[in-house]
Each structure stands twice: as C-alpha cells, then as structure tokens.
C-alpha cells in the first residue's frame, strides 16, 4: 500500500507544476459549462414542458460535469502506459515486485485526482454563486450528499476500470491510437458527456442507464441533483458496484492473459 501512496504523491506533485494549465482548464471548463447551459435554456424557453428534469437540476448536472471533468472523462489516459506497451518497455515494469494492474490503476487515480483537485474548487465556487436557476444548488440533505460522495467515488473507480480495458486492448491490436479514438468517442456518448442521459428518448435511455457507462458520471450527478432518490438511488449505487467488480475482474483476467503472452514471446 505504501508504494502506491508514494506513487500517488509523485504524480500529485507533478500535476501541481502545471499551474497555467490549471488556470486555463478552469476557464475552459467554465466557458464550456456556460455555453451548454445557455443552449439548454434556449430549449427550455421553447418548450419547458418537454424538460425531463428541473432546469436547476440540469444546471447542477452540467456544473458537476465541468468541475469534475478530469475525474470522469475517458480521454484523460496515460500516454506513458501506451508507450510502455508499444515499445516493449513493459518488460522492465514486469521486473518490479508490484502488480501491474494495481500500479496502473493507482497511477490513473493519482493523475486524475491531482488534476481534478486544482480545477474543481474554483468552478464549483463560481457556479455556486451564479443566480438560480443557472447556478449549482446544494444537495437537498445530508443523506443525498453522502450518497453522492459514495456514488462519485464509485464512478471514478468505474471510469478507471474502463480505461484499464482500453490500455489492455492495446496489447491485442496493432493500432493503439485507433482503438483509443473509437473507444473514447463511443463511451463519451453513452456516458452522457455529449448530452445528459435523461434527455434521451425513454427506450434508449433505459438501455443506456443499465450499461456500465451510466455508472461513470450519470448516476452520481443525478444523485446529487435529486433526480434519483429513495430506492432508485440504492439501485443505482448497487449497479455501480456491480459494474466496478465486473470491470476489474475482466481487466485483471485479460491483463494476466496478455502478460503471459509477452513472457512467452519474450517481449
């Protein structure tokens, strides 16, 4: 555990160096969220009764999405992992007394965390002070907040579980870049990064909400803004838990298989 912590620390310090990047990230995310809200508000003005959730809930959803972008976007992948796989340096990594899956997992968690910590606070703060219904509203009660924190953590873990599958897929293909681009663009849509899942037509939505991609950001954000409560909330979190276990088991299985292949072929 200690080695993962020190790993975490290095990553975190590394992330702190990029101050301008963090400022710019905040500005970008803020502008992006603002534009998205204006777009939704235009639709709201046209036909308010067609809105699947309260406008203020959409605002919260969007601001959370922007604030925690670094935690939930699949495209924050570690380039050095891809490099290690494609140039064969992974052989050196295998020499270390450390489980590769866990190490990569920790690496991803650390760099996402360090990026998000710097960026989320200013966005959340500004969004919180924006006038209703455009601002970020507080969760209804403490239970909602606690449920959100739990669901959010599970969401991040699911995201990394999916990222791990993308890394592992590069063992099996000739074109890591291509796999990456296809995977990212698919997952982005299914996870609600393009438009929040509640806006999709009912049939499509019900299917998508069962897939692991909804467990990434859609469930936690809807928990926060009170779009799912009570039993639905418990089911949502259990669903996240299920997908997390599933993804990690799957990832470890394929990783083991891929590494065996490497050892046999000698890199």
């Amino acid at each position: 555990m200690k080695k993962y912590l020190s790993f975490f620390k290095i990553r975190f310090l590394n992330g702190l160096q990029y101050r301008t990047a963090a400022y710019a990230g905040v500005a970008t995310q803020f502008a992006w969220g603002f534009m998205s809200l204006l777009m939704f508000s235009a639709f709201y003005k046209t036909k308010p009764e067609a809105f699947p959730m309260e406008f203020s809930q959409v605002s919260s959803y969007i601001w959370l999405q922007q604030a925690f972008l670094a935690l939930y976007m699949v495209w924050f992948l570690e380039t050095d992992i891809f490099l290690a796989i494609s140039n064969g340096n992974i052989a050196y990594e295998l020499c270390r007394p450390i489980d590769l899956y866990n190490m990569w997992y920790a690496k991803n968690l650390a760099s996402r965390f360090s990026k998000a910590v710097l960026r989320c606070l200013p966005i959340l703060l500004i969004a919180f002070f924006l006038p209703r219904p455009y601002g970020l509203s507080l969760p209804e009660n403490t239970i909602t907040l606690l449920a959100f924190l739990l669901s959010m953590s599970l969401g991040v873990l699911v995201v990394i579980g999916i990222c791990m599958l993308i890394y592992i897929a590069t063992f099996y293909t000739l074109s890591p870049m291509g796999v990456r681009i296809v995977a990212i663009s698919f997952i982005d849509f299914f996870s609600g990064a393009v438009i929040p899942l509640p806006f999709l037509p009912d049939k499509t939505r019900i299917v998508l909400q069962l897939l692991p991609f909804a467990s990434m950001q859609d469930i936690p954000f809807r928990v926060y803004c009170g779009h799912i409560t009570g039993l639905d909330r418990v089911i949502g979190i259990l669903l996240q838990l299920f997908w997390l276990v599933f993804l990690i088991t799957l990832g470890k299985f394929f990783m083991k298989k891929a590494l065996k292949k490497i050892v046999v072929q000698g890199g």
Binding site: G178, I184, S185, F186, V194, I195, F199, P201
Partner: peptide, 26 residues
C-alpha cells in the same frame, strides 16, 4: 498503418455522428 488509419477515420466519423445524435434526440 492502414488499420490505424481506418480506425481513426471511424472514430472521427463516430464522434461527429454522436454530435448529430445529440441534435436528433434533442
């Protein structure tokens, strides 16, 4: 790098298709 080329092409195609779907569903 034909595979890479085709997959990237597909990815680009899909990501803008997702934008289209966004409009369609809205």
């Amino acid at each position: 790098y034909k595979t890479s080329f085709l997959l990237t092409l597909l990815g680009q195609f899909w990501s803008s298709f997702a934008m289209f779907l966004g409009i369609y569903f809205m």
